[in-house]
Write a protein that binds this DNA or RNA. Structure first.
Length: 439
DNA sequence: TGTAATGATTTGCT
DNA sequence: AGCAAATCATTACA
């Protein structure tokens, strides 16, 4: 160990002394290369260096006064500059190499990412341009939604501006900190230069130290940018989360959707075209239509009893429109087949006893087996048909009591979805095809 | 103000 | 990809 250090030292002495020989005055500028190191004394130089090293090594064992005196003596030693250079080199090659790897990260990709994001979000960069970019992003996100999102836009913009302002004030503060940082760096540099007179501190090391200080300070900037980015992300997620800006559909839109649902109760799965048609009519998106049907199906199935009244209303409505336009009906408002299409389906239910809530005398337990469903269905259909006929002139309440939900299979889903016509109701007349195209 | 209704999202399945 | 089911978050209403 010591031996190795010694060899290293020896090998560097030549370089150092060669480089500094002129300054030290121990050699001539034109002096011959390595062998001139030893000067006239030959082995005397080595002895000299050995003495110096010995003094350095033992300096910590001495008292403070002694050490001060020794330090002064060493400082004035004619070999000092050369030795200083060598020690610096050794330090470079040992200490610095250990942590040299972490030093080279000049562009800092993370900081660049943050900068890019802040620029894209309109927090950093030009005052108004950024805002428009953010607004454009917001508009793109809002999609084809209603015009009333302008209020939310301004809300978003206001909050973004708030973040922007905070960011800029913080950035200003950071600038002040950076000034202080420069001042501090100057102090450190001066101090190190001062110390370099007695310690092996090379300019390179000073430079490195300055770099460390700057990195420490720029980490503050990084934190500022990071927290700003987080704030923007939170704002965005709040703004983008549709659940937070949910608006109930218009009454008309709900009616259109309900009409379709109850007139296709046997198979309430609108095709892509039907969804588009419904979306256009309701002024909502196709996915909103899908959502609506998904919610409706699951909620209807969960609690059919609750939806009976609604089902009756819409079933009656479609029946009325059907009779008024197609049927010869003697009474224009006769709810002739209130659930023509709806009851014809094979809508399955988890609890069969709920199926016949509106049918007096029907006991769900008797029909709980899925195997008899078609049979039940025809019974229900005929029953419903007869009863609806008999109550054709009654009020809405009568219709409510008579409504019969479609049958559901034991597995809890709409069965036979692809062939709704296979389970035809006695008065399928207007049917699903009609509703599909007319509405 | 509590609760039901409702639109949207997430998760898991096929 | 489309759906069912569970869940979330907001709105409407008594």
């Amino acid at each position: 160990m010591m031996d190795e250090q010694g060899r290293l030292l020896q090998s560097h002495i030549g370089v150092g002394m060669g480089a500094l020989s002129g300054a030290v005055g121990m050699g001539h500028p034109h002096m011959g290369p390595p062998d001139g190191v030893d000067g006239g004394g030959g082995g005397g130089g080595k002895q000299d260096i050995g003495d110096i090293l010995q003094q350095i090594m033992t300096i910590t064992d001495q008292s403070l006064d002694e050490a001060q005196a020794r330090k002064h003596a060493l400082n004035c030693h004619r070999m000092k500059p050369a030795l200083f250079s060598v020690l610096c080199e050794i330090k470079e090659k040992t200490v610095l190499s250990i942590r040299g790897a972490q030093d080279d990260d000049p562009p800092d990709p993370q900081l660049m990412r943050l900068d890019n994001m802040l620029l894209a979000e309109g927090v950093a960069g030009p005052e108004k341009g950024g805002g428009s970019a953010a607004a454009a992003a917001a508009a793109a996100v809002a999609g084809g939604a209603n015009a009333d999102n302008s209020a939310e836009h301004s809300d978003y913009r206001a909050k973004l501006a708030q973040i922007r302002q905070i960011y800029h004030t913080e950035l200003e503060k950071y600038e002040q900190v950076r000034m202080a940082c420069n001042e501090f760096t100057t102090h450190v540099m001066n101090l190190l230069r001062e110390q370099s007179r007695t310690r092996p501190i090379s300019p390179k090391e000073i430079e490195r130290m300055v770099g460390i200080i700057h990195r420490k300070f720029s980490s503050i900037q990084m934190q500022l940018k990071q927290s700003t980015c987080e704030a923007v992300m939170i704002l965005r997620s709040r703004f983008l989360d549709a659940r937070r800006k949910r608006r109930n559909f218009s009454k008309q839109a709900t009616e259109i959707l309900n009409e379709y649902f109850y007139s296709h109760l046997s198979n309430p799965y609108p095709s892509e075209e039907a969804k588009e048609e419904l979306a256009k009519k309701c002024g909502i998106t196709v996915s909103q239509v899908s959502n609506w049907f998904g919610n409706k199906r699951i909620r209807y199935k969960k609690n059919i009893g609750k939806f009976q009244e609604e089902a009756n209303i819409y079933a009656a409505r479609t029946a009325v429109s059907a009779t008024s336009s197609v049927h010869h009906g003697s009474q224009a408002n006769s709810p002739n087949t209130p659930t023509s299409a709806g009851s014809s389906g094979s809508f399955s239910m988890p609890n069969p006893s709920d199926m016949f809530l509106g049918i007096p005398g029907m006991n769900g337990d008797s029909y709980s087996s899925s195997g008899v469903t078609p049979n039940i269905q025809s019974q229900v259909d005929s029953l419903r048909h007869v009863m609806s006929q008999s109550s054709a002139y009654g009020d809405g309440m009568a219709a409510n009591q008579l409504y019969s939900p479609p049958a559901m299979s034991a597995n809890g889903g709409w069965q036979d979805a692809t062939t709704p016509s296979s389970v035809t109701s006695p008065t399928e007349g207007p049917g699903s095809v009609h509703s599909d195209t007319s509405n």
